Simulated scan of single mutants.
Amino acid sequence: MSNPNVETVTSTADRIKLGLAFVVFVAGLAGFYAFANSPMIARVGVIIAGILVALAIAWFSEPGRRLVAFGQDSVQETRKVVWPSRKETIQTTVAVFAFVVVMALFLWLADKTIEWVLYDLLLGWK
């Protein structure tokens, strides 16, 4: 793992690769609209092809390799997470719903009380 305090400099070649990847991605999107009279499967295929080619080009740049390494590290970290059991998930969900219902009733009661005080007592409207 690299030192987070050290700035990494993107080389000119990497910038060109990332720029080319962006251009290919935009070309894939433009192709979707350029083939407006073609079947939808062909139009979607052009977008998917553009994305895949752009990813392949970006893969060979240093920022692309760092992104892949970050993704791999993220997957490893999610394996370390202690996920709640089904029972804990249901209990938390019920508690959230109960809180929402209590707050809704409180806000409704507050609204009706303010309405009664303003319109009935102060203004005399009925």
Rank of each mutant, 00 (worst) to 15 (best):
K87F: 09
V102I: 15
P63K: 08
L20C: 07
F22Y: 04
A49V: 13
V82Y: 09
G28C: 08
V44R: 03
N3T: 03
V46Y: 00
A58H: 06
F106S: 10
L118Q: 06
I41Y: 13
A110C: 01
V9H: 03
L121E: 07
L109Q: 03
G71K: 00
A58N: 08
I47M: 06
V101P: 00
D111P: 00
F106W: 04
V94I: 15
M1S: 06
A54I: 02
M40H: 04
V82W: 08
L123T: 08
G124Y: 02
F99E: 01
V81K: 12
S74N: 03
R86H: 11
T78P: 01
D73L: 04
V102K: 15
S85D: 13
E77T: 08
G124I: 03
T78Y: 09
T92I: 08
S11Y: 04
T89C: 06
K126E: 05
P63S: 06
I41V: 10
L123G: 05
L118R: 07
V26Y: 02
Y33L: 08
A42W: 05
I41C: 00
E7L: 10
I51N: 02
M103A: 10
M103Y: 12
V23Y: 06
F35E: 09
T89I: 08
T92Y: 15
K80R: 14
R15W: 07
S2D: 11
T92P: 00
K17F: 12
L109E: 01
T93G: 11
V6L: 13
R65H: 10
G64F: 02
I48M: 13
G71S: 05
A110V: 07
L20E: 01
G28E: 12
L55R: 02
L18R: 09
L20P: 00
T89S: 14
V117C: 06
V81G: 07
V96P: 00
L123S: 12
A98E: 10
A27T: 13
L121Q: 08
S11W: 02
A69K: 06
G19C: 09
S2T: 04
T8N: 05
L105I: 15
L118A: 09
G28R: 03
I16G: 01
N3S: 12
A98G: 03
E88M: 09
A13W: 04
G19K: 08
L105D: 08
I114H: 03
I16E: 12
F106H: 01
A95P: 09
